[in-house]
C-alpha cells in the first residue's frame, strides 16, 4: 500500500549485545477498508540501561511497536530480540504501563500493585510492604484500599505506574504514562522516574506526545513518521544527568526541543494531508 521511504536508522555506538534489537519489523492489520500498515521496516537498537523516548503523530504505530516488544502482539515480519533472544511472548523482565491504565477494577489499589508480586510467589507480608513503598512513591498511600472507580484518571495512571515498578523489571515499556496527569504531578513523576532509572539499572522505552517530556527524560529521542510507521530519525540528547525541572531552562534544552519539535510537526502535517 504505502510507498517505501528512505529509512534513517543511524547505528548507535554498540557496546556488546543490545538490550533490545528490532530488525526489519513490519506490522500489517487486516482491516475492513483494506490492510493497515502500522509499522514498516522498523530497525532499532536499544542499549542496556538506555532511556529512549518515542514521539510521533497519533496513529503512527507507537503503541503497536510497544505491544510487539512486550510480546503481546506478533509482528507480521521481522524480529524483536531482548538480550539476544527472540521475543515470543510477555516476560517478567519487561514491565508495561498501558495507555489505558488497565487496572483490575475488582481489586483495590494495593491489591493491584501487589498482583505481579503475588504471581511471583512473594509472601503476603513482603509484597504488602513493597506495594506500600511504591504507592508512597506515586503519592497514593492514602488510597491503598480504594477501588479504581473511586480514583481520578491521573490517580489511576499512577497506580498503573506503581504496579509496573513493583515487579522491578529490567525493561520498562511505558505508553504515554503521564498523559493524563496535571503539570505538577507530571513533573514530579518525571523526576521520580529519572531517579529510579539512575538507581536501579533499567532500560526505558517511553512513548509520549510531549516533546519537552521526551527531551527531559531521554538519552535518545526516536521520531516516528506518519503512517506507515517508520523510524524517521533518532536525535541524541547530549544533556548530562541528573536532570530536573531546571534543566528546562538550559539553552541546549530549548535547542534540542525546537529541533525535534520542527521534525515532529512536519509529520503532523503529513497526517493532515
Amino acid at each position: 500500500m504505502a510507498g517505501t521511504a528512505q529509512i534513517l536508522t543511524p547505528a548507535p555506538a554498540a557496546t556488546g549485545v543490545p538490550k533490545i534489537q528490532i530488525s526489519g519489523l513490519q506490522k500489517v492489520y487486516a482491516g475492513r477498508q483494506g490492510d493497515v500498515v502500522a509499522l514498516q521496516n522498523v530497525n532499532l537498537s536499544i542499549e542496556p540501561n538506555e532511556f529512549v523516548c518515542v514521539v510521533g503523530p497519533s496513529g503512527c504505530g507507537k503503541s503497536t511497536l510497544l505491544n510487539i516488544i512486550a510480546g503481546l502482539e506478533d509482528a507480521t515480519s521481522g524480529t524483536v530480540q531482548v538480550d539476544g533472544k527472540d521475543v515470543t511472548g510477555p516476560g517478567k523482565e519487561r514491565g508495561v504501563v498501558f495507555q489505558q491504565y488497565a487496572l483490575f477494577p475488582w481489586k483495590t489499589v494495593i491489591q493491584n500493585v501487589e498482583f505481579g508480586l503475588k504471581l511471583k510467589g512473594m509472601n503476603k507480608k513482603e509484597r504488602r510492604e513493597k506495594a506500600e513503598f511504591y504507592l508512597e512513591l506515586v503519592g497514593l498511600k492514602d488510597f491503598a484500599h480504594a477501588y479504581p472507580k473511586e480514583l481520578s484518571g491521573g490517580m489511576r495512571q499512577r497506580v498503573a505506574i506503581a504496579r509496573a515498578y513493583a515487579v522491578q523489571p529490567e525493561v520498562l515499556l511505558m505508553d504515554e504514562p503521564f498523559g493524563a496527569l496535571d503539570a505538577q504531578t507530571r513533573a514530579q513523576l518525571q523526576e521520580e522516574l529519572l531517579a529510579t532509572w539512575q538507581k536501579e539499572q533499567k532500560t526505558c522505552f517511553f512513548i509520549t506526545h510531549d516533546v519537552e517530556e521526551a527531551v527531559i527524560l531521554a538519552q535518545k529521542v526516536i521520531i516516528m513518521s506518519a503512517r506507515p510507521g517508520r523510524v524517521k530519525e533518532i536525535v541524541n540528547v547530549d544533556i548530562p544527568y541528573p536532570r530536573n525541572q531546571e534543566t528546562k531552562l538550559l539553552d541546549r534544552f530549548s535547542e534540542i526541543k525546537n529541533e525535534i519539535w520542527a521534525k515532529v510537526y512536519k509529520e503532523y502535517l503529513e497526517v493532515k494531508k
Binding site: L72, P90, K92, G95, F98, Q100, A102, F115, K120
Partner: peptide
Amino acid sequence: VDPTLIKAARVLGA
C-alpha cells in the same frame, strides 16, 4: 472481559 486486562495480567507474569 476487557482484553487489555488480560494483557496487563500477562505482562505481570500470569
